[in-house]
Simulated assay, not measured.
Amino acid sequence: MANFSINIAISQENVTTLKQQGFKLFGFKAVNVSVQGGSSVIWFETNQYLASTDVKSEEKYQAYISQDTQISPQTPIQESNSADIELGQRMTISTTGSLNVTKDRPTNAVSVVADTWVSWTTGLNQLVDGVPKPLCAVPILSGFLDQFVPIKKVLLMLATRPFVSGTVIVQAFSPGILIDLTGVGSRKISFDIGIGWGSTEQT
């Protein structure tokens, strides 16, 4: 499993100002999904940033289910159950919400099928700073298959919004920076209150 790191440089003066005004760092992770009706969710949010901050992630995934079947903007999705899963595996949801993971194809995707007459919300979690957190929320109907293909792109932004990890977001709420981690293990970026986001590398 590959590991990834994004280093964020902010001057100490800017860090002090941002924290005094209640700014948090928000992260989103790209995922291709096979069905419509879903949404990205906040991957992580934190106010624990410094002059040099590393956001570390791993290609370790979980598939989750939720009984929150209304995927509404600015609403957090509460997970009901989850299971560790790898690319090339399938998770089957039982009537009671128990989860069974087996091998599947294609090898670059995670598949989820609801083998019940119950509708759920499902999605992927990915490890960030050692904790599995959600990337997206997608409806799944009985007997249908959802597939998820993680994309190695991360969106970061700073904002004062009170949102938490797992909150459905359909439109950016602050200027941000899209970081492409395809083919690399790390990127270095910067933020300045007067200038905005920038990078010393290709992003």
Rank of each mutant, 00 (worst) to 15 (best):
G194W: 09
V110N: 00
A109F: 05
G143L: 03
T95P: 06
K152W: 02
K153N: 12
P162K: 08
Q62I: 02
F191E: 03
V170Y: 09
R105W: 10
A63S: 07
R90N: 13
K60H: 14
G166S: 00
S190D: 05
L145Q: 11
T69D: 11
A63P: 08
E58R: 13
S165G: 06
Q78F: 14
S80M: 06
N125T: 01
G130Q: 00
R187C: 10
L127H: 07
P132G: 01
I77G: 02
N108P: 10
T121V: 07
G198Q: 09
L141I: 11
I93P: 01
S111G: 10
S190I: 05
G194S: 11
I179K: 04
S98W: 13
I140C: 08
N108S: 13
P106R: 02
G198S: 06
P76N: 04
S82K: 06
G123H: 07
A159P: 03
P150S: 07
L156E: 01
D104W: 08
A137I: 05
C136S: 07
S142V: 05
V110Q: 01
E79S: 14
D104L: 06
S82T: 08
T69F: 06
N108L: 12
S174E: 00
S142D: 11
K152H: 13
V170I: 12
L124F: 03
A159I: 06
T92N: 06
A63T: 07
T96N: 12
G194T: 12
V149M: 11
L155W: 15
P76E: 05
V101K: 02
T203C: 14
A63I: 01
E59D: 15
P162A: 03
S82L: 03
